[in-house]
């Protein structure tokens, strides 16, 4: 059986879990078995509805202490669930929480781990999973040598597959160790889609010349329904908040569309965004290295191009 970890935050199931379930369900089909989910804590929405992504049963450990994330506690409970339910493959999203517990679960189950898988395993000769390495500059095919396998799936690499059906909810009674972490405050940016979950991202660099010029970028993001990001020099200069910094040392993202405005495309920046499906680069310098990594390029003045693009998007939306 393939067991998928369903990640939740503030009692809402994370979008990344839908992709992990889709991956786990496709893998289960490939292996001739079925997919089940494990959910820790309580959520406000319907758990049964997760059936449409491909799980037949969702096991829930309804201990409200589990609503606060503690890697050690969560890894212990998931491990016990995997043992009790007889899971042979455990699938996580490669998001912050998934990264924090999948390796611990692998240790506890004596399982080989591939962290950051970007495709379904090849199972004709062994169990070989492809993952991105060198910050997206290469792929490695990794064979898991152990009977039990743990995989975390890179976000936006497999996609969410929506089918039909409802999952059966089953309560799972497992001992929950006491957490040794006391959470004292949570500070969230309200009303924004977290960058790692965004499917459309508009990002600005030094070419925008100053924080007072961000209005054109924000207008474009609003017209698209996109999240906003920035390059490292921009966050270092405090033009934009640090949590918007994408790149090697910032956040790594893989949206469907990444629009880079006034960003030259240094290798460290590319390392954070090169898994994006489509990259649009707007830059007045035709020699900007980013054009080599782009799908579409506009050589022109951002202060003219960006408002024109916003107007074109609004026009297209009004027409549709």
């Amino acid at each position: 059986m393939v067991l998928i970890y369903i990640d939740q935050d503030e009692q809402e199931i994370k979008k990344a879990s839908f992709e992990a379930i889709s991956y786990g369900a496709a893998l289960a089909k490939q292996l001739g078995t079925h997919a089940e989910g494990i959910l820790l804590g309580t959520v406000k929405e319907s758990v049964e509805a997760l059936g449409k992504y491909g799980v037949s049963i969702v096991h829930q450990v309804t201990n409200s202490g589990l609503n606060n994330f503690d890697a050690s506690v969560h890894a212990t409970v998931v491990t016990e669930a995997a043992k009790k339910l007889g899971a042979t493959v455990i699938v996580f999203a490669h998001n912050i929480n998934g990264k924090a517990i999948a390796p611990a679960v692998a240790v506890k189950l004596n399982a080989g781990l591939v962290a950051g898988a970007c495709a379904l395993p090849k199972t004709d000769a062994g169990f070989v999973v492809t993952k991105t390495v060198f910050s997206g500059k290469a792929f490695a095919s990794i064979k898991i040598e152990t009977p039990i396998k743990v995989i975390s799936v890179n976000q936006n690499s497999f996609g969410v597959i929506v089918g039909e059906g409802n999952a059966t909810l089953e309560n799972l009674d497992l001992p929950v160790p006491a957490s040794k972490i006391k959470i004292t405050s949570i500070d969230k940016i309200k009303g924004e889609v977290p960058l790692t979950e965004a499917s459309l991202v508009v990002s600005g660099g030094r070419g925008l010349k100053g924080p007072e010029n961000w209005g054109i970028l924000l207008d474009l993001a609003k017209a698209l329904g996109a999240s906003t990001a920035c390059s490292r020099p921009v966050s270092d200069a405090d033009w934009r908040p640090h949590h918007e910094h994408v790149g090697q040392t910032g956040i790594q993202i893989a949206p469907n569309l990444y629009i880079a405005i006034g960003i030259s495309g240094a290798i460290q920046h590319l390392a954070g965004v090169n898994r994006s499906k489509t990259i649009v680069v707007i830059n007045k310098d035709p020699e900007a290295p980013f054009f080599k990594a782009a799908d579409y390029g506009v050589i022109g003045d951002a202060f003219e191009v960006v408002p024109a693009l916003t107007a074109a998007i609004l026009k297209s939306k009004a027409g549709a």
Partner: peptide
């Protein structure tokens, strides 16, 4: 860092 913000904790 948590997705979409920060969490402060003690241990």
């Amino acid at each position: 860092e948590i997705e979409g913000g920060e969490e402060t904790c003690e241990t």
